[in-house]
Design a protein around this nucleic acid. Structure first.
Length: 262
DNA sequence: ATGGTCGCGATGCGA
């Protein structure tokens, strides 16, 4: 079974790339983030014609997650217990979507960005992660994957220049502690062992030709439960999907992450 | 320290 996660930065503007991606790699389960549209706005016909069932959430301009599966889509869950809101009473639900696909519990996660370290959204991010961790504990015993855009770079080498991030979110000790708490619970990054240490990025900002200069960040992860991690036979980041010179139309600022399960 | 580029949806805002 082949599982992928991708912050697609608008499914409507990228559906051709998404369809070509699932065809090229024969993806069984695709978790999407930043779909940027209500489910009724999303162009899903092409995916459904390929045999995918789709569950989607999304209520405003940037939040929005989906799961596309051609190996079953059961027990769909919108959000998790205690998932905190941030003012907007409807936005929180669009950040997490769970389903059981081919026997694997998959969560498509769009962790709050946090904006600035002195911003209330930063506190919200940490609270959101703490609540997710509480719920995730009950999935550790099954084949489960917490996938998506975590908006955290756990290691200094996961950003192109750690000195440039001195005052920024994504690398602060509390965010890294929140990420590492999942690891300490038993969730593991199942992709990193399959990558060279110097080539781990999943995101390159649109500004200043960051992709062309390989000034990126590693913020998209597939965290597997112990039993799922034992099934992983391979993994890779499809950087071609971030390359403006490849494919049609403009790319997302994130590359998809692909994991193979035995 | 600033600004650079996207997507959305009609203007600035969030990433």
């Amino acid at each position: 079974m082949r599982l992928a996660t991708w912050n697609v930065n608008s499914l409507r503007s990228r559906v051709d790339r998404v369809e070509a991606f699932v065809d090229r790699h024969e993806i069984d389960v695709l978790a999407l983030q930043e779909t940027k549209g209500r489910p009724d706005q999303l162009p899903l016909m092409g995916l459904e014609a390929r045999g995918y069932e789709v569950a989607a959430l999304g209520v405003n301009q940037w939040n929005g997650v989906a799961i596309c599966s051609r190996v079953g889509l059961d027990d769909v869950q919108e959000g998790f217990t205690g998932m905190p809101g941030f003012g907007d009473p409807v936005a929180p639900e669009s950040r997490a979507l769970g389903a059981v696909c081919g026997g694997v519990r998959v969560w498509s996660l769009y962790v709050p960005n946090g904006r600035k370290v002195d911003d209330p959204h930063y506190v919200y991010k940490l609270e959101w992660l703490a609540r997710l961790r509480q719920s995730a504990g009950s999935w550790l015993g099954e084949d489960a994957a917490l996938v998506g855009d975590w908006n955290i770079a756990p290691l200094d080498t996961d950003v192109f220049d750690i000195k440039a991030f001195a005052k920024d979110t994504h690398v602060t000790p509390p965010e890294r502690a929140a990420f590492n708490a999942f690891v300490e619970d038993g969730w593991s990054d199942v992709v990193r062992p399959h990558q060279p240490a110097h080539d781990t990025y999943t995101y390159w900002d649109y500004y200043r030709q960051r992709f062309e200069r390989n000034r990126g960040m590693r913020i998209d992860f597939v965290l597997g439960s112990p039993s799922l991690a034992r099934r992983v036979s391979g993994a890779f980041v499809d950087k071609d999907e971030r390359d403006p010179a490849q494919g049609t139309g403009s790319p997302s600022d994130h590359a998809p992450v692909v994991v193979d399960l035995a």
